[in-house]
Write a protein that binds this DNA or RNA. Structure first.
Lengths: 199, 199
DNA sequence: CCTAAACCGTACAGGTGTGTACGAGTTATT
DNA sequence: AATAACTCGTACACACCTGTACGGTTTAGG
């Protein structure tokens, strides 16, 4: 996790501080993504640092969570854009690739979502989701014009269905009812049918 | 909420106790279903009772939550069975009706799910979900034999998709991005496509 | 009407978490 | 080498929640 800093850094930090911030975020991401009921003390101990040091860099628990969400979102965007390079392939093929990419990112970070949802509010989380949301929205809009996606539903609902099922697949994997390998295939076939024009 | 008691009552309770139990469950159901971060004190105050009185009937917070989940599950089963009376209509038509029934029940109780999930564990919740889960599973199995449902996916995944999307629609309504009236229609069309045999 | 059941408020014990204060030690950087 | 940045541990203040104990009061029901 080398590029841990997210915003503009007004104060030039020392190298060890920089390093610790990275460690904190990496450890916290690990903890928050898998376990539930994680405290700041847990994060500090797991990172091998003092609890106070953590507060020196992240003034509150909420601030840390926000940084984590922003980081994972940025990673998701990046991962999606890497898949969206060739401009105008058929949208359904494109979506299949995007599903694979999004799945990989979301397969980590699973539980981070619920933490953020309950502690930061759904509105804030929606705002953060917006960029990646819009990418899929545009993709579906293009697929509609190409005739490969259905036109009888609000586009917002269709986007929601995409992400909802991806999240669900993650939950299923975590519950042991699904293997991480077969998830993308199921997602592709289910979403393919769900988004195609009805007969 | 007159039939509040769920199990066998070994000890004959007094009438006011009976009444208070009903009040507690109704109030708690209301609170847990809409708000987040509800404490026992909140429940008691909202029910107009002393906090100690609540503990007199439900020995722990977990016990109260369990009773609530069981109650809502029983309601869901009942609501589904009312829709499954006529034995062998085509399964896809049948599913459409079941969606409507399940939707109505789930439209209340929305947030209760997350509370139960985080505080009672996903395994326990799965056990409670099992009866209603199996009803849909059987319905899908019959639909497969009738040729109206797809056969290229594990049946467990298909059932999961059904409930996942219903839950998602509930979240969308709560977020104000969807009206409670149009949800069933969207669910029916989306699930219809998702479960039908692929082209 | 009388008893036992059920209620009330208050208080206590124990736990967990967040955020801050302080003084002293360590390390990077110039 | 000297300074400023950083880190450490400990401790404190505060808040919140759960569960229990106690003594007094109301109320249902035979």
């Amino acid at each position: 996790m080398p590029p841990a800093r997210q915003d503009e850094d007004t104060s030039p930090r020392r190298a060890d501080a920089e390093r610790n911030i990275s460690t904190i975020m990496a450890t916290a991401l690990e903890l928050f993504s898998t376990n539930a009921g994680v405290s700041m003390a847990d994060v500090a101990r797991s990172a091998g640092l003092g609890r106070v040091t953590v507060y020196a860099h992240f003034p509150s628990r909420a601030a840390l969570l926000q940084a984590l969400v922003r980081h994972s979102m940025a990673q998701a965007e990046q991962s999606m854009d890497a898949e969206l390079t060739d401009g105008d392939a058929p949208a359904d093929r494109m979506l299949a690739r995007v599903i694979g990419a999004t799945w990989r990112v979301l397969d980590r970070y699973r539980k981070l979502r619920v933490h953020a949802l309950s502690e930061l509010g759904s509105e804030w989380l929606s705002e953060q989701h917006d960029p990646v949301f819009q990418r899929v929205e545009k993709l579906i809009a293009r697929g509609r014009e190409q005739g490969v996606f259905r036109r009888d539903q609000p586009i917002g609902w269709m986007v929601t269905v995409v992400f909802s099922l991806i999240h669900t697949a993650g939950d299923e994997v975590e519950a042991g009812r699904l293997s991480s390998g077969e998830a993308p295939g199921l997602l592709r076939s289910t979403l393919g049918s769900a988004l195609s024009p009805p007969a």
